[in-house]
């Protein structure tokens, strides 16, 4: 599979899903169960989407950043500090997120 972005894997596991580029809570209406939440950095306004997400991918962040802590609590994979996740990943893309290796792959 083609590697799209890589970063710090902060919550182990693998998940496939459709990318939703999220800016804030107003994106909740188009976020479906199992989607992959891709954003610069999560915030509390995204809590409903985080609860539905199969994985979380962020441009910035570290091991104890907000998305990292939440993803581990939810038991879903998370990759942070990808730097360009929100530019390389596009809306509707089908991806595989590997939270252990810290890599997001394109699913053809």
């Amino acid at each position: 599979m083609k590697k799209l972005v890589s970063g710090l894997g902060v919550s182990a596991g693998e998940a496939r899903g459709i990318v939703r580029l999220v800016k804030d809570a107003t994106d909740a209406s188009r976020f479906r169960e199992g989607d992959v939440l891709a954003t610069r950095m999560t915030d509390p306004g995204m809590v409903v989407m985080m609860g539905k997400a199969s994985a979380i991918v962020c441009d910035i962040g570290g091991m104890t950043s907000h998305p990292s802590v939440v993803a581990r609590e939810l038991g879903i994979p998370c990759v942070v500090n990808c730097r360009k996740a929100t530019t390389v990943l596009t809306e509707g893309m089908s991806v595989l997120v590997d939270g252990k290796k810290g890599i997001v792959y394109l699913v053809e």
Binding site: P44, V47, V69, V70, E73, L74, G75
Partner: peptide
Amino acid sequence: SRLVGKLYTAAIHLVNG
């Protein structure tokens, strides 16, 4: 476990607010 995770997530986000 998922329910516990979501309960925690909801509460801690409330704390942030």
